[in-house]
Design a protein around this nucleic acid. Structure first.
Lengths: 221, 221
DNA sequence: TATAAGTGGATTGTATACAATTTAATTTAT
DNA sequence: ATAAATTAAATTGTATACAATCCACTTATA
């Protein structure tokens, strides 16, 4: 079994988390998962009671979520959930796809030797977990594979944006049911991308990424 | 001279604007334009004095700007400007380019007859302002042209994101000096895009958009 | 002198109070 | 009985007060 530091695989992109950041994430997941329904009004006091803090920090959290676009604030009327519909889940897949294709193209041109090394080790993990049929570990290592590529693009906005879209889609479009040969299928799609990195062929990478995204979108139908 | 309703050309994407939103925009422009320098600490009380409101709304504004990524907040230490460097201005051009190419591809497939009509009228304005050598009006009608296309993509996240990148680049990368034949050059680049719409040829549109973005990036060097 | 510990001022984080506005409930008028 | 007008309650917007934390400076100690 391959050896490496797996710290970067930790579920969350962010390093440290304050209390407010945890509450913010909880509220966002409530929205994305649909427990707070689209159009529903959010009353500040309710959140205060639920999380045991006063309105001031709750309002600051809401302003952040508002800026992210997950709620809409109407002056003097309050905050309203802008949840995800099937339609705009597709919108986000389109956005993710457009960016990811370009991200991979650039990452292949810019990746450092160290990063390529990490990518190789990570892919070996993917092969290992596919063989041992370990779905949960495979999902985590998949994230790690993506994380390395996003970083190798060396474009901070690209990195942040793709992580954000993944967060959205994880909670808004997670299916929890996987087809029979899911592991091997995904592994082979990733192998094409990985191969493009090893041969430093940006166009092959972009094409593989596009195919991978298309198949992902089809799979969830 | 062509006739049409030019309301949608109004400088700002947003409809209504509260006092807080105006202050928020002012602060963002201060950051983007470089008047607030990268790394500089933002003291809340200073903003209170400057804009004549108390800390509570100022902090809510800062939380929005923070979520957008223009400042970084370190717990108990305050907010620090994350201004734009030459490097990450390019990062945003890359992002904009990747999205705009895909946006145009989709817009050509999805544009309604009404929208196509508007696009045609707008392009006729562009021809008119190029002939009459009116730079200022040309810049505004350019925005209108883009706005129609962004909307015709019928992907709200795409629309919002591209408007946001344009806002960033407008203030962070505006050159204010234009080459001699700027108007005719830009008109011809747009003509290629417009032609792709009229012939409903997504690939031609994507290619024209890519060329347009590349030339735009080169022009500012 | 150099380093550590402590002190005061400044700044941020949170709670609360009050004003402005909206929402609902009730009354009044037709 | 229905619609308009009025009032009361609930909710949001803003200011202020206080607590917690950080930062620079002073003082104490080796």
């Amino acid at each position: 079994m391959p050896m490496m530091n797996l710290d970067f695989l930790s579920n969350d992109y962010q390093e440290k988390k304050t209390k407010a950041q945890k509450i913010e994430e909880e509220i966002k997941i409530e929205i994305l998962s649909g427990r707070l329904r689209t159009g529903q009004r959010i009353v500040e006091q309710d959140l205060c009671d639920k999380y045991g803090i006063s309105r001031t920090p709750i309002r600051e959290i809401l302003r952040r979520i508002e800026s992210e676009g997950l709620i809409e604030t109407i002056p003097n009327r309050g905050a309203f959930v802008k949840g995800f519909t099937e339609q705009n889940i597709d919108d986000f897949y389109v956005m993710k796809s457009a960016l990811e294709v370009q991200c991979i193209r650039w990452a292949i041109e810019r990746i450092t030797d160290d990063e390529l090394d990490m990518l190789q080790q990570t892919f070996e993990f993917m092969e290992f977990y596919t063989m041992s049929d370990d779905l949960e570990k495979m999902l985590r290592i998949n994230n790690g594979f993506d994380t390395i590529i996003y970083r190798a693009c060396h474009n901070r906005e690209m990195e942040k944006t793709l992580h954000r879209y993944n967060f959205y889609l994880k909670y808004a479009a997670s299916s929890s049911r996987y087809p029979a040969n899911y592991l091997t299928t995904v592994l082979e799609e990733h192998r094409a991308i990985f191969h493009a990195f090893m041969t430093r062929n940006p166009e092959a990478g972009a094409e593989a990424a596009e195919i991978h995204m298309l198949k992902t979108m089809i799979r969830r139908k």
